[in-house]
């Protein structure tokens, strides 16, 4: 099954966990052959901002955040998996699996 995932990562200090979570989501999505785009909301501001088209076309959304997602209303009506950044840093594989399960309704 091919999946399109979009994600937002954000941590408290915006220095490290935001970017570790981004890297780990990409790593495990790619291992499963899924497409993924990750927007980071860190101390450098918003980078790799998702377009509304990216969001509309995605099968599922992952929020790996310890704080509020900026522009959360862009994701209204989507299937959203919300986790802390630490959970994603610790186990990126299960984050991706959970997102896939959300799509298939398991």
């Amino acid at each position: 099954m091919s999946l399109k995932i979009v994600a937002v990562t954000a941590c408290i200090a915006g220095i490290a966990h935001t970017y570790m979570a981004q890297a780990n989501l990409k790593k495990y999505a790619e291992k499963s052959g899924y497409e993924i785009k990750v927007e980071t909301q860190g101390s450098m501001g918003i980078e790799n901002r998702l377009s509304q088209e990216d969001i509309d076309n995605a099968d599922v959304v992952i929020f790996a955040v310890d704080t509020t997602v900026s522009g959360r209303d862009r994701f209204d009506g989507k299937k959203i998996l919300e986790l802390g950044t630490s959970a994603v840093v610790k186990d990126g594989k299960s984050a991706i699996e959970k997102a896939a399960a959300l799509v298939s309704g398991n």
Partner: peptide, 13 residues
């Protein structure tokens, strides 16, 4: 900050 982010992401490698 960019260099710090680079270190952080490489720690997942």
């Amino acid at each position: 900050l960019q260099a710090l982010a680079k270190i952080a992401s490489r720690l997942m490698d």
